[in-house]
């Protein structure tokens, strides 16, 4: 997971103007990383471009932390 995770964190950090060190597994997308629903549109596009994985609204149900988002990406990559 490490290869793309670092690239993704770098791009998310730049896009959302959030310090890289805040992207830890337990970080809450909304409260700790300041994501709002409109950011998610960018994030999904970014994930698609960086990792080649397309995430849908259904995939995101129940995803609250950055770690859960990474698990979701990994799961979709392997599917």
């Amino acid at each position: 997971m490490t290869d793309y995770k670092e690239v993704l964190i770098g791009q998310l950090s730049e896009e959302l103007e959030v310090s890289r060190d805040k992207f830890v597994d337990g970080a809450l997308l909304k409260d700790d990383l300041g994501f709002d629903s409109l950011d998610l549109v960018d994030v999904v596009v970014l994930i698609e471009e960086t990792v080649g994985v397309k995430l849908t609204q259904r995939d995101f149900a129940g995803v609250k932390t950055f770690g859960q988002m990474l698990d979701l990406i990994e799961h979709k990559r392997q599917a």
Binding site: S37, L40, V44, Q57, D59, F60, A61, V63
Partner: peptide, 13 residues
């Protein structure tokens, strides 16, 4: 729904 981060993705879908 503002409480559901993913709901906005329905629009792009």
């Amino acid at each position: 729904n503002e409480d559901d981060l993913g709901s906005i993705l329905k629009i792009s879908e």
